[in-house]
Design a protein around this nucleic acid. Structure first.
Lengths: 209, 209
DNA sequence: TTAAAAATGTTGCAATTGCAACATTTTTAT
DNA sequence: ATAAAAATGTTGCAATTGCAACATTTTTAA
């Protein structure tokens, strides 16, 4: 993984403790498949994933599931980012996850010398999220299943700095993340193999171009 | 339009002048259809649209055009957000646009009492961009042309606080923004009219549900 | 350990979407 | 004002994708 910005990067342990106290922060652990709700609704809290993985999932009226966002260690989520009708979407911990919640306004509206580094870090985390979302939009706007898959594989290849990488999803989730039909995706992955563009063994992909 | 955060919100004119001087800011006007390039490549600059509209456009090898982002007054863009292979994408002013460029590091890494309000505003602008991108992802992950159109119409309806609104695009651009085929989209808009879900006269849409 | 649940691979068929072509209208540039 | 360019509306046909069903494998939970 490329160097991901972290909230307490460059802040020593003492300083970190002081900040955590002054910022009304809370650490919460969510076990696998738990929904993260009460902590984030209209709270102005920002959740930072210290360990684990979180998916923002939408279930449409017809039963289609869509992974709106797949979040890893270092990523953030917050109700301040979601202004849509949230009734059909929910945040789910896909593995046991340790989340640090901090209050957005506390940091932004009361800056002081102690929070300077924290603010710089938070900016970089916001920036990182914008980059991630831009890449996601680049992928989703590809016009065919094949191009979506290849664009996503390229992203993973870069992150891993290797032509080989493991998919972080089941195929079922991957299809719902790329917003395509699972069996049509399976068909296309087979075609990519037959065409000699990728190797694929057990969710380990190798790009052959 | 809902209240969009602005970079100098709550900062008086004198203060604003001082800030602009200390921040190496530049104001540049781009006439219609001009490409914005030299100002943003590897520059660490953030462009803020004071007037006009900017599209981030990708042309795929096969000729498909995709509008990755459609940016309005108050929106920002920056090379710090785009980490992909940028060779096939470009920023184009779709109307004559007045852009204020400021240096990201200047603000973030040298905070002081004078920049507090500016930092708060910039956070809100970043936050707003994350919200916009999340909504865009929500739309792009819809599974059919009809659902993409309806999700996008809902967004416009909310922004305008009305069931009626004008499309900010030509139909040709709208199709490339939703990443769908233009004539298939035209077919579906006709179907939406026939099914009594919308009225449409001359790019003015009225939702009938 | 073992039964149940979930994920995977596959395929024929149906539905949606893309494509190309063209006529017509609207916009742009000189 | 006028010619050229761009946008729009439409349609038949082709290609892609979705859907449903099922067998098989893998994972999960008691």
């Amino acid at each position: 993984m490329l160097n991901k910005p972290l909230i307490f990067q460059g802040i020593d342990e003492n300083e970190k403790k002081n900040l955590l106290n002054s910022l009304q922060s809370t650490q919460v652990i969510f076990t696998k498949n738990k929904t993260i709700a009460s902590y984030v609704n209209n709270s102005n809290l920002i959740g930072i994933i210290e360990e684990g993985q979180i998916d923002l999932v939408r279930y449409d009226y017809n039963g289609d599931r869509t992974i709106i966002e797949h979040l890893n260690q270092g990523d953030i989520f917050s109700d301040i980012f979601y202004q849509m009708d949230n009734n059909e979407t929910s945040l789910i911990a896909t593995t046991t996850s340790k989340i640090l919640f901090i209050n957005y306004d506390d940091i932004i509206k009361n800056p002081n010398k102690n929070t300077n580094k924290l603010i710089e870090n938070l900016f970089n985390i916001f920036k990182d999220k914008i980059i991630e979302q831009t890449i996601r939009i680049e992928i989703l706007t590809k016009r065919s299943i094949r191009e979506k898959l290849l664009a996503y594989f390229n992203k993973l290849s870069k992150e891993n700095m290797s032509k080989s990488f493991n998919l972080p999803f089941t195929y079922s989730f991957l299809a719902d993340y790329l917003s395509i039909n699972r069996s049509a995706m399976a068909r296309e992955i087979k075609a990519l193999k037959d065409d000699g563009l990728i190797k694929e063994i057990n969710k380990k992909i190798t790009l052959l171009y």
